[in-house]
C-alpha cells in the first residue's frame, strides 16, 4: 500500500497520529519511520516535521532508523530477569553478533529489548515481530530463529 492510501484510511485528526505511524512503519519494508513517512504524516495532519518526529521518538514501538526484516523484542522486566533473561540477552548478542538495537549483517534480525509483555507466566519471553514466545532457553531461541530463517 502506498503512503497516500494509508493516510486516507484515517481522519486527519491529531488523535490518529499513533495509528497512522503504526501503519506507516508496518508498511515500510525496513520497518521504520523514514524521513518521507514523517513528512507525509506531518503534511496530512497539518503539523510540522519536528512535531511528528518528537512524538515518534517518544514511543518505543517506533524506530527512526532502518531495521532488519525480523524484530526480536526480548523482555527485560523483573519477572523475566528472575527467570533468566540476562543470560539470554548475552546469548543472543553473541550468536547474532549484534548489540542491543543492532541489526545482523544479513539484515535478517534486529535485536531489541522491551518492557513487560504481560506473558510473565511463561517467562522469559520475547516477541518475534507480532508473535510471542515463552519459556525460552538458548536452544529454543535458536530453533525459533532457525525456523524463521528457513521461512524466508
Amino acid at each position: 500500500m502506498n503512503r497516500e492510501a494509508i493516510l486516507k484510511k484515517f481522519e486527519p485528526n491529531l488523535s490518529n497520529i499513533l495509528y497512522i505511524m503504526h501503519d506507516l512503519q508496518d508498511n515500510n519494508p525496513e520497518r521504520y519511520l523514514a524521513k518521507e513517512d514523517i513528512e507525509a504524516c506531518g503534511d496530512y495532519l497539518n503539523v510540522p516535521y519536528s512535531y511528528v518526529h518528537s512524538v515518534a521518538s517518544f514511543y518505543t514501538m517506533f524506530s527512526l532508523k532502518p531495521r532488519g526484516r525480523n524484530i526480536i523484542r526480548l523482555c527485560e522486566s523483573p519477572p523475566c530477569h528472575l527467570m533468566g533473561a540476562d543470560s539470554l540477552i548475552d546469548y543472543l548478542k553473541g550468536s547474532l553478533k549484534v548489540d542491543i538495537g543492532g541489526t545482523t549483517k544479513d539484515g535478517m534480525f534486529t535485536l531489541e529489548l522491551t518492557s513487560c509483555l504481560g506473558v510473565c507466566g511463561v517467562a522469559p519471553a520475547m516477541m518475534l515481530n507480532e508473535e510471542m514466545f515463552g519459556n525460552l532457553t538458548p536452544e529454543k531461541v535458536d530453533s525459533i530463529l532457525d525456523k524463521r530463517r528457513k521461512e524466508i
Binding site: N13, L14, S15, N16, I17, L18, Y19, M21, H22, L45, S54, V55, F58, Y59, T60, M61, F62, T114, S115
Partner: peptide, 25 residues
Amino acid sequence: VMKGAGAYVCGEETALIESLEGKRG
C-alpha cells in the same frame, strides 16, 4: 479503541490523555 505505542508512563492518567490527544505522553 485507541492503541498505544509502548510507553510505560502513559499508564499515568494525564500522560495517557496527552497520548490520546496525539502528543508525547
